[in-house]
Design a protein around this nucleic acid. Structure first.
Length: 296
RNA sequence: GGCGUGGUAGCCAAGAGGUUAGGCAGCGGUCUGCAAAAUCGCUCAGACCGGUUCGAUUCCGGUCCACGCCU
């Protein structure tokens, strides 16, 4: 653990994290470090609800809107970048305020992750193999031989299986034995808050926000991102809404259907975030209201 | 008014006289290098009334409703 002090505000999408973090940073002499796998990207400003120019003028934001759409991102790279930003902010004597909803990024940043080797090239190859005709079976057979325990554990889960094989190939050992069993200590001195609004309220906020985004420029933004190949990008293609907007623009969906589908997938995302934050962040104090008073 | 077809869970949608349909949505969980991802589990039926049968969501009759055609 470093002595660096951190304020953390996490929670599901549309729960009011950004506004709260903004106000807190303003009052506490802080700068915001985004913990969001999609706000990273340049060109997805509206669709990923990035902070406005006005917000950014009020408080410096880091790790927002800088990454080209075709760039791959992963937890490890994110953590490196975020740790760097945190150090810079702290060295300026300001308070790093982490704000965002990408649970795995946040947990990895706060608690660290086992420093196992990684090889994107190898991983990409294994992934490509998986797609070929007998790929899945071949990969399973290979794992059955090299690391049956990991296969058993993740046979349903392509990515983790591939990652397990990657590590096995790189180290000669099973990822299961290399990963620490116990959760490590926090790496920073954190004051963490997790927003957990009542379900009905959160649902309503999601619906309102989705409609507002669609009414205020998301469509042209998405059209441009689609033209730029977002759907074929390694990571950014996962952003909610862009594929659906493509369908809508192609006339395969009505506007009400589009809204509904976006709201639905956003809610599903929020649900996953809720279960993550409810279970993975014992250090965080639960806030039922995005109110500044609670964190000052 | 007549004839026909159909009424299956919040929605879509099958088959079968007795054995889980399935998909979507919903709910709960998992999560160590693509996480706005991936994945596991659970809940929710047979329009209504009667009959046949050991047993009906499935067969028969009626009622209601929807759709189509005819008058």
């Amino acid at each position: 653990m470093t002595g660096t002090e951190l304020l953390v505000i996490c929670g599901p999408t549309a729960s009011g994290k950004s506004a709260l973090a903004l106000e807190a940073a303003e009052r506490l002499h802080g700068e915001i470090v985004s913990v969001d796998s999609m706000q990273l990207y340049r060109g997805l400003e509206i669709g990923t609800a990035q902070p406005s120019a006005e917000d950014r003028a009020r408080v410096p934001h880091h790790l927002v809107g800088f990454l080209p759409l075709d760039r791959r991102m992963d937890v490890y790279s994110y953590c490196e970048a975020a740790a760097r930003a945190i150090n810079e902010i702290a060295s300026r004597g300001r308070l790093p305020v982490l704000a965002g909803g990408t649970g795995m990024y946040l947990r990895s940043l706060l608690y660290g992750m086992d420093d196992l080797p990684g090889d994107r090239q190898l991983r990409a190859e294994l992934d490509a193999q998986y797609d070929s005709a007998e790929g899945e079976g071949a990969l399973h057979a290979r794992m059955a031989e090299l690391d049956p325990a990991a296969l058993e554990r993740w046979k349903q889960c392509r990515r983790r299986l591939i990652r397990a094989l990657e590590v096995r190939l790189l180290t000669g050992e099973s990822i299961l034995t290399l990963q620490g069993r116990v959760r490590p200590e926090l790496r920073y001195r954190v004051r963490a808050f997790r927003l957990d609004l009542p379900v009905d309220l959160l649902k309503a906020r999601i619906a309102v926000r989705a409609k507002k985004m669609l009414d205020s420029g998301w469509l042209p933004e998405a059209e441009k991102a689609l033209a730029g190949g977002i759907l074929d990008s390694p990571t950014a293609h996962q952003a909610i809404g862009y594929r659906q907007i493509g369908e809508f623009l192609a006339g395969r969906m009505t506007r009400p259907e589009l809204e509904e589908r976006i709201i639905t997938s956003t809610w599903q995302y929020a649900r996953r975030q809720r279960t993550w934050f409810n279970h993975q962040h014992p250090e965080a104090i639960c806030l039922q209201n995005p109110e500044i008073g609670a964190i000052l």
